[in-house]
Structure formats: C-alpha cells, structure tokens
C-alpha cells in the first residue's frame, strides 16, 4: 500500500513570465500525481516547461497559480524558511553542471546539507558524509577537490550530497547532460539502486535512451503534458554496462 502512497500532487499548476507586454506561458494548468517509490523521467524539447516544472516541485521557484501538495500537505503557503527546511530534509538535488562548491573537498561538499540541518549532531556528520560517498563508490576520494575529479565522479559527489539527509525525493535536472554514455549509465545505475531502496526519483532529461532507465515517462510540450506512460522495455543499468564492456572487449580483440 505504501508503494501507492501519493507523494507529490499538483493541480492546475500555471507559470507565466512577463516578457515586455507579452505574457509567456511556461506551464499551462499542469495536474499530476507522483507516488512514493516512483522513478519518473520528464522529457521534452527545450522550452517545453519541463525544467520550470522541476524547479517548482523542487521548491526553488513559485508557480503563478495552482496547488501543490507534498505528502498531502500544502507547500505553496509555506514561507521561504520553511521551504528551505523542506529542501534540506525532504529533497535532494542533482544538477546537470554538478554544482559542487569549488575548492572544497568531496567530503566537505557532502557535509554541507548536514551543516544546514539543525537535527544532525556534529559527531555523526563526518560518518554520514563518508557513508553517502561510499554508497556512490567514492570511499577512496573523500579529500579530493572537484577539479581533481572526473565529470562522472563529480556527479556522484553531487548525488552523495543529495542523499546525505536521507531525502524522500531526488530531483535530477539533466544529470547526464555533461557525461558520456558509459558514465551516464553508471549514474543511472546509482539512481536505479537508490530507487530500489525506496527513494523516489524525478529526473528531467531530453535523451530518450536515458529516459528508458526510469519506470515511467512524462512528456512535456509547450507547457502541457502530452504523454504520461510507464516504460515498457525498461533498461537495467547493470546489464547495459555489461553490454558496453563486451563491445569494448570485442573491439580490442579484432
């Protein structure tokens, strides 16, 4: 039953931007429900409104009108500080450009959300950060600075940072946009593992093959949802990575 529990519910979500005298509709009355344990890929061309939608459900941006409930509770009536607390404890963000703090070690980057969380004692902070980095396979790069890490490793630090406060949802905005396909698959592998552990994942992507790793796909066009369907032939990252490994092996032998 908990599998089907509503996590995110939006009704008639509308966002308009004022460009000179022209009103531009970024989102036109979106209504959607995302359940706990889902892995949703949001697709669409640029300008389709998918990122705007993501920013709004990630509490980074406000809609012009509409309703947004998280775990059945209203989100839009909360003030800035309450939204910050919500982002800190319930949401984890992964961005296309990683957005790690420069000249700050992997471990310190991951500790950052804990520093803004009053409930986390100083004593457990380091332990939690190391645990999160270990879960993304970076246990040996704790002290590395972002510029010493590859793109895939930086994105994994970002995922560890999103994970460290044990969020309900991970919001990923084009997480593989700056990565090659093999690294992308590795990131998808991490997402699938986290999803299996019960974390809901909402991911924006414009790459159809990346969307195949999700459980369901939502397609945006011109600020509206034009398709919302489960993924039929879902890709499993571990298997895809094996295929790539075999291909490289064949190439090297011939």
């Amino acid at each position: 039953m908990s599998e089907r529990e509503n996590l995110i519910t939006v009704r008639d979500l509308t966002k308009t931007y004022q460009t000179g005298s022209v009103e531009v509709f970024a989102l036109k009355a979106i209504s959607l429900t995302i359940n706990k344990g889902e892995f949703v890929a949001i697709m669409g061309a640029s300008g389709s409104g998918k990122s705007t939608f993501m920013n709004i459900i990630g509490c980074l941006d406000n809609p012009t009108s509409g309703e947004y409930l998280m775990e059945g509770k209203d989100v839009l009536t909360r003030d800035k500080d309450e939204l910050a607390e919500l982002r800190n404890s319930k949401l984890g963000f992964v961005f296309q450009s990683f957005n790690l703090l420069p000249r700050t070690s992997a471990q310190e980057n991951v500790e950052l959300p804990l520093l803004y969380n009053n409930k986390v004692e100083a004593a457990v902070r380091e332990h939690k950060a190391i645990e999160a980095l270990t879960s993304v396979g970076l246990a040996d790069r704790l002290g590395a600075m972002p510029n010493e890490l590859s793109g895939g490793q930086q994105q994994r630090v970002a995922i560890a940072r999103a994970l460290v406060n044990a969020p309900l949802v991970i919001m990923a905005d084009e997480p593989t946009g700056n990565l090659d396909s093999k690294t992308s698959y590795e990131i998808m592998g991490i997402f699938q593992k986290l999803n299996d552990e019960g974390i809901t994942i909402v991911m924006v992507t414009h790459e159809p093959d990346i969307a195949q790793f999700a459980k369901s796909n939502i397609v945006f066009k011109d600020g509206k949802i034009i398709a919302n369907h489960p993924v039929t032939d879902r890709k499993i990252a571990m298997e895809e990575l094996k295929k790539i490994a075999t291909l490289t092996d064949e190439n090297s032998t011939t």
Partner: peptide
C-alpha cells in the same frame, strides 16, 4: 551568486 544558489538549493535559509 551561484554558490549562494547551491547553498539555498540544499537547504540554506536566507538568514544562514
């Protein structure tokens, strides 16, 4: 500014 944005995204309040 971007760093401030990151901090806010991961839960820093205005007063933080």
């Amino acid at each position: 500014t971007r760093e401030i944005g990151i901090r806010m995204a991961i839960g820093a309040k205005g007063r933080d």
